[in-house]
Design a protein around this nucleic acid. Structure first.
Length: 313
DNA sequence: GAATCGTGGGG
DNA sequence: TCCCCAAGATT
């Protein structure tokens, strides 16, 4: 570990000590379960939107056993509008696995965590590091961006994680376990607050004078991220249907999901079933509506019986 | 490796 | 307004 790298460690962890956000899953009172829930919720979802839902979840289900004892549909409903509701389903499945295979306690090692549904490479490393204080190579989108700029000299990392990036991250990880945990959290926070994707706050950066990207004159990114299509996609239709199912108290007749609610139910009932109006405003082809509903049922995000469609049991 | 999977706030 | 994109995982 040369002095250059040690200088980076010093500057970034010092910056973290004075600038880190106070987040409940970082609190001294935190539990491994709370950390796991936060990491799943934070996959592709901003901190500000996660905070209130995380608080409700931990109050309602302070342990994996609590969540595991309820129907998966309750997890999906409590997920609210965080997006990617299959994460709620997987977190529920993870809770059951923790109860059945780990005696109700969140496992503490990377390979064990990796076995849990919805836990991939990043999340397994993050939970092992932040909940259990282990030395892991944590690589998320923030860390990748900081490395790309400060070390490699690129405006943005490549679209997918490369082996070279993993090697770089591993080479930068402090040897001391405690230092490594602080380093992971610090680089991630720097990427989230200062070294942001758009309009980075370079004036606030603790390593501005050592940033390879700045030194190179802040060249443009090599590629342009292709925007995620939305209007007219199955995802849009699935999202609208899930919003209706979450707000409904009981089963919703299939016809009400496949047609605009107002057609069959009248304006009052339509508003009750679809308070956000998402499905009402949606004008997708009937064939696509059918396909989207079939997909939700295949994914176990919805279940259908003689009474209609509802969140899963 | 590429495609798929929600949602809404900020530039 | 429109577009970008946020602590990824799975198939």
């Amino acid at each position: 570990m040369d002095s250059q790298v040690e200088d980076l460690h010093r500057r970034i962890t010092r910056w973290f000590a004075g600038n880190a956000r106070e987040l409940p899953w970082r609190d001294a009172e935190r539990t491994p379960w709370g950390v796991l829930v936060s990491e799943i919720m934070l996959q592709q979802t901003p901190v500000a939107r996660v905070l209130p839902v995380w608080t409700e979840w931990l109050q309602r289900w302070p342990t994996p056993a609590g969540l595991a004892s309820e129907p998966s549909g309750e997890a999906v409903r409590a997920w609210g509008r965080l997006g990617y509701p299959r994460r709620a389903l997987r977190l529920h499945a993870a809770a059951k696995a923790i109860v059945e295979e780990f005696a109700g306690k969140v496992p503490s090692t990377y390979p064990e965590l990796l076995q849990l549904p919805g836990v991939g490479d990043y999340t397994a490393a993050a939970v092992a590091a932040f909940a259990f204080g282990r030395r892991e190579t944590v690589v998320d989108t923030n860390i990748r961006r900081v490395h790309a700029r400060a070390v490699t000299g690129n405006a943005l990392p490549s679209p997918s994680l490369t082996a070279a990036e993993m090697r770089l991250a591993a080479s930068l990880l402090p040897l001391d376990t405690s230092d490594s945990v602080a380093w992971n959290a610090s680089v991630m926070e720097l990427g989230a607050l200062v070294c942001t994707a758009r309009s980075p706050r370079c004036q606030e950066c603790p390593i501005l004078d050592r940033c390879a990207w700045v030194a190179a004159g802040r060249p443009e990114a090599h590629y342009t991220a292709k925007g995620q299509a939305w209007a007219g996609t199955d995802r849009q239709v699935r999202g609208a249907m899930m919003a209706v199912l979450r707000s409904a108290e009981g089963p919703v007749r299939r016809e009400l999901l496949l047609h605009a609610p107002v057609d069959l139910a009248g304006p009052e009932l339509a508003a009750e079933l679809d308070p956000l109006g998402t499905l009402h405003r949606l004008q997708a082809p009937q064939e696509q509506m059918e396909r989207a509903l079939a997909g939700l049922i295949a994914d176990r995000l919805a279940a259908e019986d003689a009474n209609g469609v509802s969140l899963p049991l």
